[in-house]
Amino acid sequence: MMRVAIANQKGGVGKTTTAINLATALAAIGWKVLLVDLDPQGNASTGLGVGHAGREHTSYDVLIGNASLGDSVVQTRVPRLELLPATMDLSGAEVELVSLTDRARRLERALDSVGSGRWDICLIDCPPSLGLLTVNALVAAKHLLVPLQCEFFALEGLSQLLQTVERIRLGFNPDLQILGVALTMFDRRNKLSQQVADDVRACLGRAVFETVVPRNVRLSEAPSHGLPALIYDLRCSGSEAYVRLARELMARLPREAVAA
């Protein structure tokens, strides 16, 4: 099972929207997908239509050891897409994990405990921080996808994230690789968006995906209906962009993973 963490310590850059719609696109082509909601806000859970009544066991329970991963996942409205939901309880995990053994490997161990054939890929929606929750995601994952907002401060903090990735490689997970940087919230009416996109590509080169996700009202509306944008409005510009991004993501994954 491939494991991809979707992370950026800056908030509001499109991490959850990216996680939900990439997971939906991969499920639509026949992949068995697990989406792990590791953000205490639980937006990925809400955006997939899983209400609080349907979150009997959550990522908090799995990390703390109160429940197994297999018993905690729920089926979403999207065929072949399962979710490990989150609630605000997860905000306390940062403190509770400190006293636990192997606190950085709790998610990795939970994923390892599930049989290899249940899912083809796991996407992990990280919180907007570089705390223990994000560290758990980076230790458990083999690949990192970074959503980057096309605004003035897009590169602010990116170096800190890359430094954290390097520390994770040295201390816990030498196999962690950056799958790519996805430019999000691109406003074609704003020259600054194009300037930022050009600057990011000049700095990071081929690490940046070709697909640029635009600002789109339908992307913003979809979560309020408990649906991915790809189901809410497949023909909107945001959905079309995420379909293209999913194709690029597949092209960058190891061939054996795509073949599986």
Rank of each mutant, 00 (worst) to 15 (best):
L144M: 10
N190F: 07
R77K: 15
V78G: 11
G131L: 09
V243I: 11
R3F: 09
D233A: 10
L219Y: 03
S99F: 09
V98C: 12
V243E: 12
L155F: 02
Q195N: 13
L144A: 02
L192F: 12
A137K: 08
E210T: 12
D175P: 13
T18Q: 04
R3V: 12
Q75R: 13
S239R: 04
A182I: 00
T87L: 07
A141V: 02
A207I: 12
R103L: 08
D112R: 15
W119Q: 07
P254T: 05
L161A: 00
A53Q: 14
T17V: 08
N43S: 11
E82H: 15
A53D: 15
V98M: 12
L35K: 06
G11K: 01
A110N: 00
N8Q: 03
A5I: 10
T211H: 00
E256N: 10
G205C: 01
H52K: 15
R118W: 07
L48A: 06
I124S: 02
V208K: 00
R244I: 02
A93S: 14
R169Q: 02
V4W: 01
T134F: 03
P223S: 11
A44R: 10
L230M: 06
F153H: 06
D89G: 14
L170P: 13
D175F: 10
I231N: 07
L63W: 00
Q149I: 00
E82P: 15
R103V: 02
N216K: 05
W119H: 02
E240G: 13
G92H: 11
L81G: 08
T46F: 14
H225L: 15
Y60M: 09
G65N: 09
R247H: 11
P254V: 05
L69E: 04
V95Y: 12
A25R: 05
M250W: 08
E166F: 00
T24R: 10
T134P: 00
L100I: 06
V36Q: 07
L48Y: 06
V196K: 03
G171V: 14
E96S: 12
V78I: 05
P79T: 00
E221C: 11
G226T: 06
Q177T: 13
L123C: 08
L176I: 07
R201Y: 02
A241E: 08
G226L: 11
L81P: 04
V73I: 10
R189E: 09
E240A: 03
M1C: 10
L38G: 09
N190I: 01
P147S: 10
D71C: 14
S72M: 00
A110S: 08
V165E: 04
V13D: 04
L130Y: 00
A28K: 13
